[in-house]
Amino acid sequence: MVVLLFVCVVFQADYHWLAWPRAFAEAGTIGAIADWYAVVALFRHPLGLPIPHTAIIEQNQHRIAESLGSFVEDNFLTPEVIIGRLSGHDTAKAMAEWLVKPANSRAIADVVADSLPGLLDGIDDEDFAGFLDRLVIPQLRTLDLSRVAGNILKVVTDGNRHQPLLDHGLEALELWLTTNAGMLKAKFSAASRYTPAQLDAYIVSKFVEGVIALLHEVVANQDHELRRQFDEALQDLILQLQTSRTHRRFGKTLMRDCLRHFRNGRHASALLNHIRTRVVAEVHRKQSIVRSIAADVLVSLGESLGRSPAVQQKLNAWWLNRAHQLVVRYRRQISELITGVVKGWNAKEASRKIEAEIGRDLQYIRINGTFVGGIVGVLLHAVTLLLSG
């Protein structure tokens, strides 16, 4: 614009029509300088001169911080805005669909499993002992150990679930007899000093063989008489554990003695260390049961939630209510956080970063201001000619 103005001034005497581009250049130059000044004054002192009401962002950082915090609080962190945005999204259904995917549930399970060692390390031994004394031990004192044992046995025996355990026990007994046949012969010979050693060995061998053959029969025959007798004895034991006052008193006495021994022996620290060791070892295993169970539980939770629209509706309602409470409770703290962060910025550095971030748009402001000024200059020149004519 300055170059154009200079050319027009030099040649206007010879070319009178240059009065029009001269008017454009004069006003455009003024507009360019004015917009340059206005833009620069927002961020710093023009030409480094401490002109009043310049470097506006730098000089008014605290006021801008307060205004920004209040603006966010009043226009973004309102319950109406937050709940309005969240209510249009079925969060429970989305969460169910996300959890059903094994990879997602596994990712959450990995995070939980990886955090367990750190959580356990952060537990103080005395705090753990106090937790046991206040919450766990009082519950154990009132526990009906006899009835619990009876219920556990009942669950195990329902549907003949205990039969594989019985088979395993019979196989273990056979292995013990086979392994310790020599010891049995020695004991029998020591108890029967007046019989020949060969006869003792023969009797013990036949006895062991007979018992093993009987064990084979019991394992092979699911309806064997010994199985029936064992089941009857087990059912009778379950009934006694669930109903007998004698067993109940014995269970309470046993529990009381165990708890007294636990407290007197200060085993809380040892228990916590044992839990830490086992959890760390389990978490770092390649096929971790903790990770697998947690992932399976999350997948099952997602499937159950996906099949229950009523639960989804309740969960969404709870989530929106909770979000409303959080917004009401913490909106002021978030606003103060924004204000504090902005106040803590270095004023000059913040102003420079804002200017650099806006960048190209500031250049267009200057360019547009130049052309707008030039157009206004031409219009004013035209009006002047009309009024003077």
Rank of each mutant, 00 (worst) to 15 (best):
A94S: 13
L177N: 02
S87D: 14
G373K: 01
K93F: 02
V219S: 03
E336L: 14
T78C: 04
T195Y: 11
I338G: 04
D296P: 08
N346Q: 11
Q229F: 13
P21M: 03
R193K: 15
R266I: 03
Q198S: 09
Q59L: 04
L173S: 05
H89N: 05
N60W: 04
K185H: 04
H16Q: 12
L254T: 13
L214T: 10
A191C: 08
A323P: 01
R63E: 07
A13L: 10
W176Y: 15
P164K: 12
L215I: 05
L140W: 10
I137P: 01
V280A: 12
A213P: 03
A270E: 05
V383L: 13
A96G: 04
C8A: 08
I338E: 00
V290K: 08
H224W: 04
H274D: 06
R366L: 14
K343R: 15
I338R: 07
L77S: 12
L175H: 14
I212V: 15
T277K: 15
G389N: 13
T339P: 02
E303A: 06
K101G: 04
L68A: 01
Q198F: 10
R44F: 05
A19E: 02
N151M: 14
T243V: 09
G344F: 10
R332F: 03
C8I: 02
I375S: 07
G344C: 11
S105R: 03
D125F: 03
A347R: 12
D14L: 10
V372P: 01
V378R: 12
Q325Y: 11
L239S: 05
E217D: 08
S115P: 05
L305K: 03
I334L: 14
L49Y: 01
E225I: 13
S189G: 13
H381A: 13
A181Y: 10
G69W: 05
A38H: 09
Y37I: 13
A220C: 05
Q242H: 06
V3Y: 04
G306I: 07
G28S: 07
S351F: 02
F128S: 10
P46C: 10
V39Y: 11
Y15D: 00
A32I: 05
R134S: 12
Q363N: 14
R256W: 09
L140S: 04
N60G: 04
R22T: 00
A92D: 02
E355T: 05
I82H: 01
W318D: 11
I108S: 00
Q313T: 12
S70R: 15
D125Q: 05
E225Q: 11
R63Q: 09
S335R: 06
A92F: 01
L237S: 00
S115E: 07
N151Q: 14
D158I: 12
L177A: 04
A113P: 01
Q242W: 05
A149Q: 14
H16G: 08
A109Y: 00
A323C: 07
I57E: 02
A92G: 00
L272D: 02
N368H: 11
A190T: 15
F43E: 00
R63Y: 08
K206W: 06
A323G: 08
G169D: 06
V111A: 11
V290M: 09
